[in-house]
Write a protein that binds this DNA or RNA. Structure first.
Lengths: 334, 334
DNA sequence: TTGTACGCGTTATCAA
DNA sequence: TTGATAACGCGTACAA
């Protein structure tokens, strides 16, 4: 069933059918009605490939998600999905491995699918620096800041990871903690991990806190298991910390389990503070203290910015979303 | 940059370029080399729209995911993604609302995108019965059984939800429990929820256990919050259960928090058993007892079956994946 | 207001 | 082993 069939069926020409389908002006009511009726009856669906080939671009928005096992990206995708669903743009979600190059992937997908715009969840600045110039459509980097990359089609929406991590540690210091351990992301491969670690160091310096980067810090992947393993190593190395900061809630959860397995109570013996503010955290026992990012807001703003770039040729911008250090039950004053 | 440009650049015709690009026979080594070189240099990417328009179908595989806030679907998508990535087929993931009609959505996407095959995560049999006939490409329904629907292009891979739930309750009975509460899915809208509930009833009947469907059962959505709320209602209604079965791990987590908020200890006062076997469960305190589905296997087999249907015209099949009732720390003998 | 005809980038047929 | 060319389904300039 093509527009040609539709034309034949209704007695009109393909041009008229096309006009009706695309709500173009200069079509008689009569023609419109007849054609719409034929569309209904035949269950006609436009052939996207032909349309996009003709128009030299798709009407879709593309999302590249880096790392599938990241719960935060999961909620992000969820909100993005529902926001984009309010428009007429189809959304295509593409998952790639945490270690893949998201920019090269995006370049390829852009050439292949010709989307209107693209969102990238999780990114490595180095990749952007090297290859982003090859992307011509508007792009929003979600959850990392790209303000020091000067591409006029690249926007970003993120939390101020470094400052947020500093505030997190500050809050632990305010609770009386002096001996810290950190379970964070790998500084080499994860910008987010590095920034959050630097934020911690900022706080340590400011408060004159003693911290051995080699022994008190573990840079691993953002997962339950890695958080668990890293914490076990910290304990086995006899780092006698009273507070543990995890650069992600999933790590914090793994950490709490590890502490427990070694007989430590949370928060009585060790306070644990996470980062992300996953919904899950408030249902745990103890409820997870965490740096709560406005995940929802991050997603909503990202979509808004992208749509503005696409529809109004809006210029690129770099925004921060607010965060809150939320003390719940996994941290305590000592 | 099109194959026409490539042809011009190398002095060959477009046909030869196309042959090289698609690894067709009857091309001289020399031509192959020259053309591949030009491809490298120009960063040429084939235009999928044109290709698919010509071929009357895409090379992609489509996944329709029903409900974004479902962690189990998250892991499923993750595995599917990595399995499909081993092939050359691009994967398109489409998320729809938990309440939307997944079959109509799939029908539309098939007509629009012409994928090679399609996978649907989460499904309502009624929708399939009404509209699946409109889908012509191979399809695998993941996580629900479709064996009593006789479509020869519809396969399914699932856990035997009813039997698994029965085994779960059996195990609680074996631990000495006699007073039960169930936090499950809505039997009207969720096939999975209904089957798991029926499994529970099977066990109750078999063991002559008293159960008031109106008071002891709550049918809600698969989320932390709904599990929490439902459990609060059960407690407030003074249903004095010693065991709570949740039809999903996320609900079980919400339930444990609710119990805790009302001063009940898990498992000392109440045993809680979940369903799904999320990785998260084994990091919780207490570690969550659960009906562990082979999520990974489910995803892997689904992809295998779909690829077999696509590539070898393999016939449709309905498979079950194994499950295990895993007693960890949230259940105990009384 | 409507229709004709061309071209988007590709693949595949056929002839060379 | 190659190349010219006809489709694929759509949108749109141009003509009517």
């Amino acid at each position: 069933m093509t527009i040609k069939d539709l034309a034949e069926k209704t007695g009109y020409g393909v041009a008229t059918v096309s006009r009706v389908l695309n709500n173009h002006p200069n079509v008689s009511e009569k023609a419109k009605k007849a054609i719409m009726k034929a569309v209904e009856e035949s269950g006609f669906q436009i052939n996207d490939n032909a349309k996009q080939l003709k128009q030299q671009r798709a009407t879709s928005i593309l999302v590249v998600v880096k790392g599938t096992s990241n719960e935060m990206f999961g909620s992000l995708v969820e909100t993005i999905q529902s926001e984009v669903a309010k428009t007429d743009y189809p959304l295509i979600v593409d998952y790639i491995d945490e270690d893949d190059n998201e920019v090269l992937r995006a370049v390829r997908l852009c050439r292949e699918k010709k989307p209107l715009g693209i969102m990238i969840l999780g990114g490595n600045m180095e990749h952007f620096r090297n290859d982003f110039e090859k992307i011509e459509v508007p792009c929003v980097l979600v959850s990392s800041d790209a303000s020091n990359l000067k591409f006029d089609n690249l926007s970003s929406v993120s939390t101020d990871d470094r400052f947020a991590a500093k505030c997190a540690v500050d809050s632990l210091v305010a609770l009386g903690h002096k001996r810290f351990a950190i379970v964070g992301g790998d500084c080499e491969t994860s910008d987010t991990g590095r920034l959050r670690f630097e934020g911690c160091m900022d706080s340590f310096r400011e408060h004159g806190i003693d911290f051995d980067r080699e022994l008190d810090y573990k840079g691993v992947r953002f997962s339950y298991q890695d958080g668990y393993n890293a914490t076990c190593r910290l304990i086995e190395n006899k780092r006698n910390f009273t507070a543990l900061f995890a650069a992600a809630d999933v790590m914090a959860i793994g950490a709490i389990r590890a502490l427990r397995d070694y007989g430590f109570r949370v928060p009585e013996d060790v306070s644990v503070l996470g980062f992300d503010g996953l919904a899950l955290g408030s249902f745990l026992v103890p409820k997870l203290s965490t740096v709560e990012q406005s995940v929802r807001k991050m997603a909503v703003r990202s979509v808004e910015i992208l749509l503005d770039s696409i529809e109004n040729n809006g210029k690129s911008r770099h925004e921060r979303v607010p965060f809150v250090v939320r003390q719940r039950e996994s941290t305590r004053k000592i």
